[in-house]
Design a protein around this nucleic acid. Structure first.
Lengths: 131, 131
DNA sequence: AAGGATATGTAATGTCATAACATATTGGCC
DNA sequence: GGCCAATATGTTATGACATTACATATCCTT
């Protein structure tokens, strides 16, 4: 069912999975130089497929990518991200009520939603405790 | 109360207000060449101020900017955008329940939200009717 | 008039993403 | 096995978005 990953896809996935925070495509590339990757497109192509498979998310407000925290569990869900501007960590969550409300708006306005982005920028509790 | 706009800010604001759809900073620049603007920074600096004043919004998923549809009316609101990928037009709306739910999540996770982005990409009714 | 804050002008550079083209690998299907 | 289509890969160049750094000008307050 889940297709196997190709070499480049595996490398990119592994890099993202091991990262503490979102990475830009160029940062991923830098970390994979030793594995033979040389051009941005090698990373972007792998990311495209991983996004399609739902294994990776793109954070629009950051122009960066994260490994999905709950692969396969949200086929139908609307995912929101809380991004700490201090430590860079990202929390992934979903809220059925939010989804219902946005779906309701779309329906009443005859808007056919293809993809919805919800990103909250701020400071996570951990950072505040330290600061 | 509302500070007057400087020359560059006015030019940028006027360009965005007259546009049917979001514009990138470089598109704005191109449209203002005849008014003497020459460098991206002149546009970005004006945009920064206009964003601060709440007269303009940035669409993260588009790397583009729109004039605010309801200036001064949403000091406290959470604004969502529905972006038509067909005609490019953007609808701006807010939903108190969505705001409450996201605020609730943030509170329960000790996350201090600074800015929240909600962007729905899809097709607006008008486009579907034509297609 | 002096001085600080804000706005402006300009060049250079940094960051993110894709187009275009060539080559290689994979996987059915006869 | 051999063929062909689909998919993946490699590489160069270019396009699109945004900021750093520095110089100059304007505005406001005293």
């Amino acid at each position: 069912m889940t297709p196997d990953l190709t070499r480049n896809q595996s490398l990119v996935m592994k890099t993202l999975s091991g990262a503490e925070a979102p990475l830009s495509a160029y940062t991923i590339l830098d970390r994979l130089r030793d594995d033979g990757l040389r051009a941005p497109l090698q990373v972007y192509r792998a990311l495209d497929k991983l996004l399609d498979m739902g294994l990776v998310h793109r954070l629009e407000s950051l122009n960066a990518f994260v490994a999905c925290a709950h692969p396969h569990t949200h086929e139908q869900e609307l995912i929101a991200f809380a991004i700490c501007e201090n430590c860079g960590k990202v929390e992934e969550f979903s809220d059925e009520v939010v989804k219902e409300r946005l779906d309701g708006w779309a329906k009443s306005h005859r808007f056919r939603a293809a993809k919805t982005t919800i990103e909250i920028r701020g400071d996570c509790g951990g950072c505040e405790a330290k600061g």
